[in-house]
Design a protein around this nucleic acid. Sequence first.
DNA 1: CATCCACAGGAAGGACGGGGGT
DNA 2: ACCCCCGTCCTTCCTGTGGATG
Length: 404
Amino acid sequence: MDVEALLKAELSKDSVFVNRDYLSPHYIPEMLPFREKQVESVTKILAPFLKGKRPNNMFIYGKVGTGKTCVARKVLDTTLNFGEKQGIPVNGTYINCRITSTKYGVLVKIASKLVPEESLLGFSLSYMFEKIKNTLSQNKMHFAVILDEVDKVKDVDDLIYTLTRMNDELDFGGLSIIGISNVISFKENLDTRTKSTLCEEEYVFPPYNADELREILTERASVGFKPGAVETSALNLAAAVASQESGDARRALMLLLRAGDVADETGKKKVTETEIHTAKTKVEEDLIIDLISTLPAQHQIVLYAITRLTEANKGYTKLDGEKKLGMIFSGEIYDNYTMLSKKLGKSPKTARWYREMIRELETYGLITVQQSGKGIRGHTHLIKMNFDAHKTRGVLEKQLGLED
DNA sequence: CATCCACAGGAAGGACGGGGGT
DNA sequence: ACCCCCGTCCTTCCTGTGGATG
């Protein structure tokens, strides 16, 4: 008797859901529809693992919500389980580089996976390096790291170099890297050596089309929702909306999840097109919150300054052409940022550091940066928001604790 | 054409904070 | 309790750049 299942059923009595978890973007389903080929390819690459050979490194590129992370994690998990059952010394871990963005952090993560019983914080980088090397060598172990959002690592070249150097120094065992990114330009900015080591194998994951999304949604809805709780037209709409906005499965699922919440809140027994429409705006806010909440306070203030200037439409005060509509001058933002910082009782950072923050905001996809061309005196950057300024400002005000 | 503008972004070096050794 | 080490964050100082300006 599954008590937990009973409790969940009890909880969901007045809900359209049976189990919300199945709709969570973090849930990894048994089967990954429309990704069979990719699963097969990645599995084949990792297979030498089980024969005690070092698999090639791998680079996976694809837009958000195309199943990169899902496929990589799924295959790694299965391979590790299989290896364990067969008594083969394999190990591996998943690292999200948006959270662990330094070389040191990545090494700590790997080391603590290898020797979870030891406390490793505070040791030097070289100690960590040796620790990993020795553990792998002594156990003749093969290790695979998934570096999700590799583009977020501070010095990728250095990290990849360090990890490959480990292989050269190892007599037994080995380490292979699975890099994942959704930034097209990422590869171009890599050192040639890094590029050739990381991209020994390369895969591009295409976006899902509307039909595929609809099937994914239908499948998840059948396990996550009560039977008949979602109208077919609602599923079609959700799939259409998501495919229109880039074929992002994660977003499609969030949309459906949110629509279910809306139905629950309004006491409806069914999810219809109306709920999907209402959920659409909420999902956008969720995505913004997702991106913003992990940002350091100073970055948030910079972004806040950008939203304010965007809303005030200061973008074209100094410009005549319409091409640059909605673009804001870097210097303007900095002035605004220093003012806001002081207002919030924080000392503003220097202009040099401000430029670093702008660069980071760009890599997070929150803003677009463009070189100033003709028509502007001097050499500066023009900045544009990628999300709705009003919504972003609302989220930021909550985050920064200022609501007036 | 020299000069200025309004920045960009590299290099080097503090300040800080967690952690170990003694 | 003290110092030292290390990695990260951030500042200071600096040289570079593409276009406008006089």
